[in-house]
């Protein structure tokens, strides 16, 4: 890849402005699209992120990290390159990075979604010449149901478990997905308890003024007589651990786009899979690419080769796989 952005050993790099975007190793200047671990590496000298994302990023980075923020849409000059951040709708503070230099506009999406999410600013379409997009769910089998419908299912599952005397344990990423779940469920059904990793992020979200129903940290001191009324929100890594045994008998659910495929649910021995993603599904991914007007598209974080081929053959775009050295599958 050659031009305004190139790929270095540390990740995406802008030679003109001498900064990286989402480097996976510490660098001098890093623009961070959002605070998930595969996008925000600790130890860089200087970070730039959205004003909305400061709280979560600060929580995830080392103490005293130098974090500069800009409001969505505000432009700043970084080494002669005009930089602005635009809402990506993925999690709190997530941003697309728009770069303008010598009349050319590039946009790096980071992770993004267009579905509604009350915990962050909604995605904004940005026109550009070169579009660097994630395609985590870049296959036509991925189509998301209406989130309202999914929350209806989660609520009914929680109520039914309550009637059957089972604790509802709902898995989702501790940053972003968990808060979206907590904000979306019907909190009148019962109390909501959270794993420590989730509870910490809830506090950060609340500190930002996000309206979440009350949640209690799961601990021996806070343990109720009977867990079966509760919805417990936890990262999926807590699944096979001892931590979960205290809730027996349980019904387990996982909220993720991967749950669209039955094998993913069965392999994890989950009772329920809820199709709720913080990424785009296939139709929206195609709509957004059409909407940007970009003629050159780099794709990453997915079935890159087939998605690039689709864009070339079906849309006539100059589409290629972003040759990042480190790839993450989710």
């Amino acid at each position: 890849m050659d031009g305004l952005l190139t790929v270095s050993d540390d990740g995406l790099y802008c030679p003109a402005g001498d900064f990286h975007i989402d480097p996976h190793r510490p660098v001098e200047r890093a623009i961070v699209t959002h605070a998930h671990g595969d996008h925000a590496a600790r130890g860089s000298d200087h970070y730039l992120t959205s004003a909305e994302g400061e709280g979560v990023l600060r929580h995830r980075m080392l103490d005293g990290a130098a974090i500069q923020t800009v409001a969505y849409g505000e432009t700043i000059d970084v080494g002669g390159v005009t930089v602005s951040l635009h809402p990506a709708g993925h999690i709190r503070g997530s941003a697309q990075v728009r770069l303008e230099h010598r009349g050319e506009v590039w946009v790096v999406t980071g992770d993004y979604k267009v579905a509604p999410d009350p915990t962050c600013t909604p995605f904004e379409l940005v026109e550009c010449d070169v579009f660097i997009t994630e395609c985590t769910f870049g296959l036509p089998i991925y189509r998301w149901p209406d989130p309202e419908e999914v929350f209806g299912k989660i609520n009914r599952w929680w109520k039914k478990n309550r009637e059957e005397g089972k604790t509802s344990v709902l898995f989702g990423y501790s940053l972003g997905k968990a808060q979206r779940l907590i904000a979306g469920v019907d909190a009148s059904i019962g109390p909501i308890y959270c794993h420590g990793a989730v509870q910490k992020m809830n506090d950060v979200y609340r500190g930002d003024g996000v309206n979440l129903p009350p949640t209690t940290y799961v601990s021996d001191e806070n343990a109720p007589e009977d867990w079966s009324e509760a919805l417990v929100v936890a990262p999926s890594s807590a699944g096979g651990s001892r931590w979960i045994q205290r809730f027996d008998p349980v019904s387990t659910g996982f909220a993720s786009g991967w749950m669209r495929i039955r094998g993913n649910k069965r392999r994890r021995s989950l009772d329920r899979g809820f199709v709720l993603s913080d990424h785009l599904d296939w139709p929206h991914l195609n709509d957004v690419i059409d909407g940007t007007g970009a003629q050159t598209v780099y794709v990453t974080h997915g079935n890159n080769d087939s998605f690039a081929r689709w864009l070339q053959e079906e849309k006539g775009l100059d589409a290629r796989e972003l040759p990042l050295r480190s790839q993450y599958d989710d």
Binding site: L139, P140, I141, I261, G263, N303, S306, R309, W310, E313, E314
Partner: peptide
């Protein structure tokens, strides 16, 4: 959709 895209989907599912 083209057949290759379907086979790609099938490989995943």
């Amino acid at each position: 959709i083209p057949e290759w895209m379907l086979e790609e989907s099938y490989t995943t599912v």
